[in-house]
Design a protein around this nucleic acid. Structure first.
Lengths: 231, 231
DNA sequence: AGAAGACTTTGCGCCAAAGCAACTTACCAA
DNA sequence: TTGGTAAGTTGCTTTGGCGCAAAGTCTTCT
């Protein structure tokens, strides 16, 4: 599963095969940046000047289309890197990164970053791997949206989110993110109406319990079946 | 425009900021692999063991879904790298790479590759940039398919293909690829029927001339208008 | 507590596009 | 030349899901 968030910084793919000492040195070159809910780490089309690792809070990565529509590409939770395009020269951010709640992130500027890559070539290799995972995920999501029904795409997305941020409760797994119907719609490429209807249907089947910006999965296997069943 | 094919190997993004001498050394470590039309460089889910740069012919990158559907993600033309996931350890190919016609490619095995990345860290940075472009392209295509009508998506795709492989003829720009209606349908996420109908409509408007696995663009501006117009 | 604002649900009409079927056209190989 | 096959077209029917509108909830702030 790509982008499975890790709990310790040292477990990041980015630091793969580096020694504790090397990681410490790398971390020393980062600065911390706190922002409030609603603020942005960066905006789409800004020149990509820094690379981030979120350590606290939640960040939305969204993309605007030419005609003003918006889609939600992903939610970042600790500890996950984002803004990796900055690793490549002369790029602009393809997305905007907005804090959902108060956030803290480690930040490396572009120049520091290229020094680091020179000093620790393994880090560059790791970065390639991270990007490869991104490519795979979006190829996959593209294929999904091109071939699958909304219901299945939504089931898959909810399961994915549960993997990423799910917390176990006595009654089931709760997706620990404030996601509106609109947000979910943008993530799977549909409308808030269809999401609402689908969730209602699942609720009446006892698969989930849906609330305002809240989803509790009562019967994960049922969702998996919808996500994978033939036809 | 991402993945604009280049005519000289030295112009590849992968070799950015490397000296002619370094590039020569890197090229020396590649072997050549010829394959016939219909054969595969690799299949989806094979362990990713090599990285390729196509120097002759045309290659289709396709992805199968769990339920057997297929989609055509991209057509590779010379000189373009593919199979870049091999740069990351322990990955499998997310797509299959099939030759459309007799092909030649430069190949670097995984072990050689990691040695090269150690010796030339700039190459890893370049690889990150390439991957970043891939991510952007698929984010973009995901956004498109999620928000735009078939007609617009098809127009965009044809323009993209024309950029990649278009050849000028006295009557217009010809897309120099044997693409069936089915292929186009897979690329934009629709059905062959809808593609056929749309092309027929454009033909009757004098925008294009469509033949068997062949498209001639008579009036590019008309297509651009469809691709970009509001609503 | 009450009011305002944001989020959600659901009925209804509509349409873009899917999917089927029948037919035509182009290509290739014997 | 001729049949066989793959590619393409087009009419018809069906439908998933869009999107408006109106009503219903939950939250928050005063």
């Amino acid at each position: 599963m790509p982008f499975q968030p890790v709990s310790r910084l040292e477990d990041l793919t980015l630091f793969n095969k580096l020694t504790e000492e090397e990681i410490r040195q790398i971390l020393k070159t980062a600065r911390q940046q706190h922002i409030q809910a609603g603020e942005f780490y960066f905006m789409q089309d800004d020149p990509a000047e820094a690379f981030y690792v979120l350590t606290k809070g939640k960040v939305r990565l969204t993309q605007f289309t030419a005609d003003g529509q918006q889609i939600l590409l992903r939610i970042i939770v600790p500890v996950t890197p984002f803004g990796a395009v900055a690793l490549a020269d002369h790029e602009t951010y393809p997305v905007s990164a907005q804090a959902v709640e108060a956030c803290t992130a480690l930040v490396w500027g572009k120049t520091v970053l290229s020094q680091l890559l020179g000093r620790f070539p393994q880090m560059a290799v790791n970065a390639v791997k991270i990007m490869a995972e991104h490519v795979q995920e979006f190829q996959q999501r593209f294929t999904e949206i091109a071939t699958q029904r909304v219901e299945r795409r939504l089931a898959r997305m909810i399961l994915r989110l549960a993997h990423q941020t799910g917390v176990k409760t006595p009654r089931g797994v709760e997706v620990n993110l404030p996601l509106s119907r609109q947000d979910l719609a943008e993530m799977v490429g549909t409308t808030l109406y269809t999401v609402s209807r689908t969730l209602s249907q699942w609720e009446s089947q006892g698969l989930i319990q849906a609330g305002r910006e809240r989803i509790l999965i009562l019967h994960p296997h049922g969702l998996v079946k919808i996500a994978e069943e033939e036809t």
